[in-house]
């Protein structure tokens, strides 16, 4: 039996009496693109927080490639290869677009306890950063201050940052939200190219993108996974239709 890339065992999270993640177990094989859908407030973002280590779980176990990483915090898990994007864009607005990405490269390339030599002139870092920017279609924005990018471009930048951090598991929280049709097409295209190269957990409300990209889909409702299956099977699942898809496909 091959070891799954990511395995969630009985993960829980509650805020007071509210069970936001209610005994979630999930196994994601290597290089799968796994989409997570569910109505607003279902707990999708919270689950991403728990997988990335931003929030600790109340109970449950998390395995990365067979290794128990439950006790690791956010930066430690990032160094293990779990890299995430945020639902609300999270960048360094006063750094150049290039430096935003170069920092992610820096995090994975040698020690950052170096006190001499200008970081912004390190070709190794800049070249890799530029490659990531090219991949997301932001190359011509490299020298612009990141805060000045359009909303959609910031989403692209965040994806470039995540890619530059060399993830083995990429967690994306609504990467298409708020992007225009053109940027959305660029990003969907990019996700399609990334598919099969790394393991991706994708939260997305854009059903067209989800159903065309995902290998498998999990449906989260009130903190519980009510179904995990192929896109076709999810589409045909009556329980899913009433709980979630019903409203949109009716």
């Amino acid at each position: 039996m091959t070891i799954p890339m990511l395995e969630l065992r009985h993960i829980r999270k509650n805020f007071g009496a509210l069970n936001v993640t209610d005994d979630v177990s999930l196994t994601i094989p290597r290089h799968e693109l796994h989409a997570m859908i569910g109505p607003n407030g279902a707990g999708k973002t919270t689950l991403i927080h728990q997988i990335s280590g931003l929030l600790s779980s109340n109970s449950g176990t998390l395995l990365l490639n067979g290794e128990d990483i439950t006790a690791l915090d956010l930066p430690q898990r990032a160094r293990k290869g779990i890299v995430r994007s945020f639902q609300i864009t999270s960048i360094l607005p006063h750094f150049s677009t290039l430096e935003n990405v170069a920092l992610a490269v820096q995090a994975r390339s040698g020690s950052s306890f170096r006190f001499f030599g200008r970081a912004d002139r390190e070709a190794v870092l800049n070249d890799a950063a530029l490659a990531a920017l090219t991949e997301v279609g932001l190359r011509d924005r490299a020298n612009l201050r990141a805060g000045l990018l359009s909303h959609g471009e910031k989403r692209q930048l965040e994806l470039a940052i995540a890619l530059a951090a060399q993830p083995s598991v990429l967690l994306l929280d609504e990467p298409l939200a708020g992007t225009g049709p053109e940027e959305s097409a660029v990003l969907t295209d990019l996700l399609r190219r990334l598919k099969g190269r790394l393991t991706i957990v994708l939260i997305e409300h854009d059903m067209e993108a989800v159903f065309s990209l995902a290998d498998r889909i999990s449906v989260l409702v009130y903190g519980k996974i009510i179904a995990t299956d192929t896109p076709q099977a999810i589409r045909d699942n009556p329980e899913v239709r009433t709980a979630y898809l019903g409203e949109e496909t009716a």
């Binding site: 956010l74 607005p93 750094f95 920092l103 820096q106 995090a107 950052s112 306890f113 200008r118 912004d120």
Partner: peptide
């Protein structure tokens, strides 16, 4: 001057702007 423009200084400056972003790419601040 050297410190603030070095790799190390860039981590410090990044953490000033957005510590969560820095942790999410793997810096234990």
């Amino acid at each position: 001057r050297m410190i603030v423009t070095s790799r190390f200084g860039r981590v410090i400056r990044g953490a000033r702007e957005n510590p969560q972003r820095m942790e999410a790419i793997g810096f234990s601040l």
